[in-house]
């Protein structure tokens, strides 16, 4: 019984981890950069929805859509104005994105102040199914996250943009040679990543707190997931996200609650030692 409850909670959490990590894995695969500012779009998504819901009184659907669209547009701008010039120099990218994330955090403090903010839940209460508790808010967020993930997967499989994206991710030079505008695909992918990070924030901010430094922890988790899943592998990322959530919840109940984060990194290190390319990473092995 306890086990079932834990697994269900883990799965609900895993869906949201997958959503957060998916954007990072796409950006990583397509742009071949280590983007340390990925968490910024998560923070922005949360603040935008706070702004639209609390300050302007919009309903949460409208607020959510506006927030993720804004994040998408900011992603486009950042790619064009900031990353494009330095994209081939990995160290510069890391330093610049790191600095950018800090600068943005300061800007958020300037605009919205540093106090903690909360958002009202849009689904209140708990379902009790034979003793298993399911919080409605987490269920709704999970369901929306799964829909978004499925849409992204379909989009990658079915659309021309999706195919081009996968080709750039597999082999950038090859993509040039078949006439794909690689830079355009990279820009759009970066914006899609921003969009996904912001949507995770929109879904999670009714559960968590909103504050300027909120983006760092998801960034670290997303990196852990992406490494575990094998850089740039979408399937690996999704599986690793659920693995992370389940490891967290099970280890904290059965071993020790302060170990939830440690245990994931232990698993991560073990996997990397055994399979340096992660669970599903084979792209660069060719």
């Amino acid at each position: 019984m306890a086990f079932i409850q834990l697994v269900i909670s883990g799965v609900l959490q895993g869906g949201l981890y997958a959503l957060i990590a998916l954007g990072l894995t796409l950006t990583l695969g397509v742009m071949r950069i280590t983007d340390l500012s990925y968490g910024v779009y998560y923070t922005l998504g949360a603040y935008f929805s706070f702004f639209f819901i609390i300050k302007l009184g919009f309903n949460f659907v409208l607020a959510g859509i506006l927030s993720v669209v804004l994040a998408f547009l900011i992603g486009l701008l950042v790619e064009r104005l900031l990353l494009r010039r330095i994209i081939s120099d990995e160290l510069s990218v890391m330093i610049l994105t790191f600095a950018f994330a800090y600068a943005l955090e300061e800007i958020i403090v300037f605009v919205w102040g540093s106090p903690f903010r909360t958002l009202p839940p849009y689904a209140i209460g708990t379902l009790n199914i034979g003793g298993i508790l399911l919080e409605k808010q987490r269920l709704v967020s999970f369901a929306v996250a799964v829909v978004l993930i499925v849409l992204v997967l379909l989009f990658l499989k079915k659309t021309r943009f999706g195919k081009a994206l996968r080709m750039v991710s597999q082999q950038q030079h090859g993509a040039y040679l078949v006439g794909i505008d690689v830079q355009l695909i990279q820009r759009l992918t970066f914006a899609v990543g921003s969009f996904l990070a912001a949507s995770a924030a929109v879904l999670l901010s009714p559960i968590y707190l909103v504050y300027p430094a909120m983006g760092w922890s998801p960034l670290l988790k997303a990196f852990g997931i992406v490494i575990l899943g094998g850089m740039g592998s979408v399937k690996g990322t999704i599986i690793a996200a659920f693995a992370l959530a389940l490891i967290e919840v099970l280890s904290s109940y059965y071993i020790n609650q302060s170990l939830s984060q440690v245990s994931f990194f232990v698993v991560l290190i073990l996997v990397i030692l055994i399979r340096p390319s992660g669970l599903f990473g084979n792209r660069e092995g060719v």
């Binding site: 834990l6 883990g10 922890s217 919840v249 609650q257």
Partner: peptide, 8 residues
């Protein structure tokens, strides 16, 4: 950085 407290 915990966000899920089922175990607790």
């Amino acid at each position: 950085s915990a966000t899920e407290f089922t175990a607790t």
